[in-house]
């Protein structure tokens, strides 16, 4: 709830506006990468927005930071790693494929493959007489 209020204050105090023209890089390839990265990064002071669409100052700072780093030649992974080390894994919308998150990624495919095999076993060769 606290985060919610902080966000409200930000929205009212600063009328910043999503991605602004002054932020956009001239190099379209880098800009595309910046947009792509931004869509995975959560605005920590907002409800459920990525920094690309958020209007907060926090998001603006991160957008500028990402672009600075891209211009300096950092890779996407390096930038994400740095952000995670600074703000925690909460900042990424797509959890890293490590630790307990592996369960999150693999449960669906596991259920699918397991049940698929079970279905074939049960229905393709039912025991005679049943």
């Amino acid at each position: 709830m606290r985060i919610h209020y902080i966000c409200l204050i930000f929205v009212l105090a600063s009328k910043a506006f999503a991605v602004e023209p002054s932020e956009i890089l001239n190099d379209t390839k880098l800009e595309d990468r910046a947009r792509n990265l931004s869509s995975n990064i959560r605005c920590l002071v907002c409800q459920n927005e990525n920094i690309d669409s958020s209007e907060s100052e926090f998001a603006k700072d991160l957008r500028l930071y990402i672009r600075d780093q891209l211009v300096e030649g950092r890779t996407d992974e390096e930038i994400e790693k740095f952000l995670v080390s600074k703000y925690g894994s909460y900042i990424l919308f797509k959890p890293e494929f490590t630790g307990y998150n592996i369960f999150l990624y693999l449960l669906g495919p596991f259920i699918f493959i397991f049940s698929f095999i079970m279905i074939l076993l049960v229905f393709l060769n039912p025991k005679k007489g049943e």
């Binding site: 990424l92 797509k94 959890p95």
Partner: peptide, 24 residues
Amino acid sequence: FLGTIWPFIIEAMFDEQVSVGEPF
């Protein structure tokens, strides 16, 4: 469903915060 409740599970079990959003 798992993606939606995952942040609550992780917070309850490990006291950590994760986000699960569109890219996931």
